[in-house]
Design a protein around this nucleic acid. Sequence first.
DNA 1: AAGGGTGACAACCGCCAGGTG
DNA 2: ACACCTGGCGGTTGTCACCCT
Length: 368
Amino acid sequence: MVPPAPLSPLSAKGKPHSLSLHPTPPHPTRHGLKLWAEDEKLLSHITKHGHGCWSSVPKQAGLQRCGKSCRLRWINYLRPDLKRGTFSQQEEDLIIELHAALGNRWSQIAARLPGRTDNEIKNLWNSSIKKKLRQKGIDPTTHRPLSGAAAAEKAPPDEKTSLDDQRPTAPPPSDHALPLVGGAGKSMAAALTKDSVLDQVNYGPSSSPPSAPTAPGLSASLSPLLLWLSQNCRPSDVCPPAASSVPPPPNSLPSPPPPCTSLNGDHIWDCITGRGGADVEFHGSCSSSSLFDSSPLPWPEEELKWAEYLNSTFPAPSAMQSHGMFAAGVDVVRAEGPFQGGVLGTWLQVADVYSRDFQRISAAFGQI
DNA sequence: AAGGGTGACAACCGCCAGGTG
DNA sequence: ACACCTGGCGGTTGTCACCCT
């Protein structure tokens, strides 16, 4: 039986995917793909009705797949808010930094990279970033120098890493250690403690923002992360309820809020660790009724499509900080569209800081 | 030109957590 | 308390395209 022409927007290596269907028909034998001539059905169904209960989607949409498979297809491929194409250097830097703090929590990392999926990031990490880090002499698992003797000296025997595949074990649960999963949990768990995080967060009102770390090393790597989190975590997550109930005036947007002056360190910690629902996640609500709530923002239609989707997962756009996160995060790579305003500029500056910070951090690691 | 190596990508698989009856 | 279902996540595999020798 000749499989029908796939509808998947696959493209050749290195060529950016487009959201239009059938740009480059994939090889029909590519596993799984031949079944995805149903992409259009799935896309249409979810666009119209939302996914609701995934297990019922295949039946309702007339697909021959299980709900789980449909969900995966939607999340990793059909979601209209997906950003296609190669990762920018800034994105890669952010991934590395987030990986250092979160470990292999791809979904949480993906939540901080708008338009990117956990699968995408995971693939990038395994196929590209890992190698790059090793070439730079950094253990991609521990984010520490790879030099054998030094690494062995600093790490207990069971923490030794090899150039081959790492077999990390999760650190013991602790209220004060980042619940890192995978390799990053090793040494980083020891270094990244709640206290260290709070040290970064709870500086006095006259202190300089954390975007200008004064000391290289882990705490330095944490600072930009915290800055990022402070700006991009939902206000309701990182601020006390009373504070979050009063949205900042719109004209305050271009200047990022003093990252931590209004932030509670514990909330920041929760944000980092994922406690308290602080993650800005892209998964759609299971409620189809809320999935495509109309957006109050006069976005161009092109943007509106996925903005509607996002609107179901992000806080109300009136929470301008979140809007800024959403817009700027996307525009970091796709420097076009309607969001090139002060927010974007601010975010780009921040991203630039991250990039420079990461370079310093990498250099610092090399000196350890 | 041919073959092997490598990168990129999508999908599969198994496990786990939360919700529900 | 228990079993079941569902959704979500992370690790792994399979496939194709490109690059290099």
